[in-house]
């Protein structure tokens, strides 16, 4: 019964340790690494410009999570209370793009939002704008890409927690004099929190680490941590610095995972919130 443990050790724990140890080393000119202990890489990672990339990535991830939530929650809410048949149809339609390759989906967004894309053509046909609007290669395009990519990951967990709500609780609340709005705030919303938390984790962390969407849909100013790491590894050949940035990202994600498990233990939640 040891193979899974062995596998995790060799292909997961050890590689992470290598990255962490590289982060304290120095890059040689030929791309090699000399293993000495230095904090130089961290000093560099936390200095003005690179720190601002870190903050920017955080900002993008937070805004993306928020925007995705704003679109996803109403969808999940509608879906949870509609007819069984419609539920199945909507589920199918939401999962459909999910099954299409991620890069293809990003590519399709590029086409859709491009200056000769359908949206711009439609806007110009309707006379909403004279010249094509710039919707990709800027922050807007990046957000559209992120939301598009993340939407199913936010809708589905929220839906599944809303769908599990015992409807008699909502009836009880209405029965006790609460209006629909009050019932939503006091009963529905609190019970969808486990799904919401899962959705936030599933959106926030992958967004933080993504480098393809800023590259394809973002503009010159939308560099994120992922782009920085990729560039350090594959172009600048400065693995120690890339490792330092990666380690910072790992630490941030670990903090999130610990908080997630602490506040919402996936194994317990079902018992405490739904009997």
């Amino acid at each position: 019964m040891a193979p899974p443990v062995f596998w995790l050790l060799v292909f997961f724990i050890v590689p992470l340790l290598i990255v962490v140890s590289y982060s304290f080393s120095i890059a040689k000119t030929d791309g090699g690494i000399s293993l000495v202990f230095t904090l130089k890489n961290y000093g560099q990672a936390l200095e003005g410009m690179y720190l601002s990339v870190l903050f920017k990535s955080f900002g993008y991830a937070i805004v993306t999570t928020l925007l995705t939530f704003l679109l996803a929650y109403p969808m999940a809410y509608y879906m949870a209370f509609t007819t069984q048949r419609q539920k199945m149809i909507i589920m199918f339609l939401i999962i459909l793009p999910f099954w299409t390759n991620f890069l293809i989906r990003m590519f399709s967004i590029m086409i859709l939002l491009g200056e000769n894309g359908l949206i711009n053509k439609a806007f110009m046909f309707l006379g909403l704008t004279d010249s094509p609007l710039r919707m990709i290669n800027n922050t807007f395009g990046m957000y559209v890409g992120f939301i598009y990519w993340n939407l199913p990951f936010m809708v589905l967990p929220i839906f599944s927690s809303l769908d599990r709500i015992d409807v008699s609780l909502l009836e009880a609340s209405l029965d006790l004099g609460a209006s629909q709005r009050q019932t939503f705030m006091k009963v529905t919303l609190p019970y969808s929190i486990p799904g919401l938390v899962a959705g936030i984790v599933f959106v926030f962390i992958p967004t933080l680490g993504n480098f393809v969407i800023p590259e394809f849909l973002g503009g010159t100013q939308n560099t994120m941590i992922g782009n920085l790491i990729t560039a350090q590894y594959l172009q600048a050949q400065n693995w120690p610095f890339g490792s330092a940035i990666s380690t910072v990202l790992i630490v941030i994600v670990m903090i999130f995972i610990v908080l997630y498990i602490r506040f919402y233990d996936p194994t317990k939640s079902k018992n405490t919130l739904n009997f």
Binding site: S168, A172, D175, S179, K186, V187, Y191
Partner: peptide
């Protein structure tokens, strides 16, 4: 339902699991 002067005791009781007994009653 919230404008009717009737109240219900549900078959499965439908107590709000995140509220204490007191809070449930005071809802």
């Amino acid at each position: 339902p919230n404008n009717r002067d009737v109240n219900t005791v549900f078959q499965n009781y439908a107590l709000f699991p995140n509220l204490s007994v007191w809070e449930n009653i005071a809802y």
